[in-house]
Design a protein around this nucleic acid. Structure first.
Length: 485
RNA sequence: GGCCCGUUGGUCAAGAGGUCAAGACACCGCCCUUUCACGGCGGUAUCGCGAGUUCGAUUCUCGCACGGGUCACCA
């Protein structure tokens, strides 16, 4: 039998932000489609008007576009099985539900909310499982007609078998079997005539030809009921791929409510889209080989459902940072400068800044762009430092030796005709040779004097070039003054 | 509480009935080096517990513990 062309769908609710778990689901959904030369579909599930948020759909579009998860069919571009916005598909569901009633797989229920609440209370109090008690399950056709005619509000419920078991297969979790007796006769069509999510989802997935359903494993427990629906209609059951949640810590999911970072937040914090995608791919999925750094096209090659983990994965900011660092280092110098400039300007306003040189110093030392401002906060003005910085055991320097060295350096640099890194380096090398000391004996005091810091991107000579001759000399004089006191 | 699912280092995780139980991040040490970082080399650290099957279980089975999910006219 010719296998059906793979069609997957990402079906988010427009809630106003894209959280990491959701984005990962979108990624896996995309990868499974592309891996199989299939179609990746975007469907917006906006039927909960109460939760509707202005602009939320745009956030979904933006995020998917920025991360490269480009959909082949969707609300904005259409496709053969539209509409792709659930609220525009409302007309079709009731007729499917009525068909189910006729076939004996669903029934009208006239129970009002008070009765249901009462039932729930009793069941909870007596420790019984809370489920619909089947009150309207066996109404005769006449009774139903009568109530319908009388205009009594009703819902349509799924008629689940009460005996036996239902088994379904999941690509991640394997075969799962449940007792039919625990299945609730869930509502398919609400009193307002609209479908519940559970029903709409099944009908939408089928009518859109979805072959692989990728979703969070919180849906694992409702899957048997979905399958009963597919079977009742005689539809093909999709391949299920349930993915475990992304956690903040051992006990809590990553969520906006806990104040955890959304995709947008991470980008705002200076992370690169590619790095975020690469990292979240690794959260709950392991590649076959030892490499962990993959671009999106490489992920398509590498991804395999068998590598998806069954257990939850804790989001580790340290690892994300490390991976981001890899991507920052891979950037071309031009791209690095473009992305880093706003962060550079946060703490360095100097006009005639040698961006080229600064970028070379900064790029290997930057894991996240937000590291940058603090690294270069000494450029605009010399920090007020303590002379203890001049003491470095390994360099064999102290305040006294540094003072002597700075006094040697000052006239040499004052006399230096062209202020270029090479000539500064050469001048310092000459001094080192003349004094017959180690490089650091001369260069450590220089760095401290020009930066006022212990750790800087690049060494004293690079900083000297960056600062320019006048400022460098000024700072060396300040150093001499500090050390002379 | 019923049902379902899960449990390999601090984190992500590979793994197979017999392995010195991969790799990455983090951490530590060394090298490189004018500091830090980058890069290179090395190190510490893991199979939840108890039975059973077996010559041998981390791997298979069953209990237990712990954690998660689900039990809406929400999605």
């Amino acid at each position: 039998m010719e296998p059906k062309k793979v069609r997957t769908r990402f079906a988010p609710s427009p809630t106003g932000y894209m959280h990491i778990g959701n984005l990962r689901t979108a990624l896996y959904t995309y990868l499974i489609a592309k891996k199989n030369n299939g179609t990746f579909i975007l469907r917006i599930e906006d039927t909960d008007q109460a939760r509707y948020v202005e602009g939320a759909v745009d956030i979904i579009y933006d995020t998917l576009r920025k991360t490269g998860l480009i959909w082949d069919e969707g609300p904005d571009i259409g496709g053969p099985v539209g509409p792709y916005i659930q609220s525009q598909r409302m007309g079709m569901f009731k007729k499917y539900a009525e068909q189910l009633v006729e076939m004996g797989h669903a029934y009208y229920c006239f129970c009002d909310k008070d009765r249901l609440e009462e039932l729930h209370k009793i069941q909870t109090a007596s420790g019984m499982p809370t489920k619909y008690d089947g009150h309207c399950r066996n109404l005769s056709k006449e009774e139903v007609q009568e109530k319908l005619a009388a205009g009594i509000p009703y819902v349509i419920r799924q008629k689940c078998p009460t005996e036996g078991t239902t088994t379904f297969h999941d690509e991640v979790f394997g075969d799962i079997t449940v007792e039919n007796s625990v299945l609730d006769d869930q509502i398919l069509i609400k009193a307002d005539g609209m479908p519940t999510y559970n029903f709409a989802n099944v009908v939408d997935d089928h009518t859109m030809g979805i072959t692989h359903v990728i979703r969070g494993n919180e849906y694992l427990s409702s899957t048997p009921k979905y399958n009963l629906l597919y079977e009742a209609f005689g539809w093909d059951i999709p391949v299920y791929i349930h993915v475990p949640p992304v956690m903040k810590d051992a006990n809590n999911k990553l969520s906006k409510r806990n104040g955890d970072a959304s995709f947008e937040d991470l980008i705002a914090k200076g992370y690169l889209e590619e790095a975020v995608i690469n990292y979240i791919a690794l959260l709950g999925w392991a590649p076959k080989g030892e490499n962990e750094i993959f671009t999106l096209p490489e992920l398509i090659q590498e991804f395999d459902v068998s590598g998806i983990s069954k257990s939850p994965a804790i989001f580790d900011p340290a690892k994300l940072k490390a991976i981001n660092g890899e991507y920052v280092r891979k950037l071309s110098k031009e791209d690095f400068i473009r992305d880093a400039l706003p962060y550079i300007r946060q703490s360095c306003k100097k006009e005639d800044l040698n961006l080229d040189l600064l970028a070379e110093l900064l790029q290997p030392r930057t894991e996240v762009f937000t590291d940058i401002p603090e690294q270069i906060d000494f450029i605009d003005s010399l920090p007020d430092y303590d002379i203890s910085l001049y003491t470095h055991k390994k360099m064999k320097t102290n305040a006294e030796s540094s003072l002597a060295v700075l006094k040697e350096i000052l006239p040499i640099l004052e006399a230096l005709p062209d202020w270029k890194l090479d000539s500064i380096n050469a001048a310092m090398a000459d001094l080192v040779a003349k004094l017959q000391v180690k490089n650091g004996y001369v260069l450590w005091p220089l760095r401290v004097a020009v930066s006022g810091k212990q750790f800087t991107p690049g060494g004293g000579t690079e900083i000297a070039e960056l600062l320019g001759k006048d400022e460098t000399l000024r700072r060396i004089r300040i150093g001499i003054e500090k050390l002379s006191q």
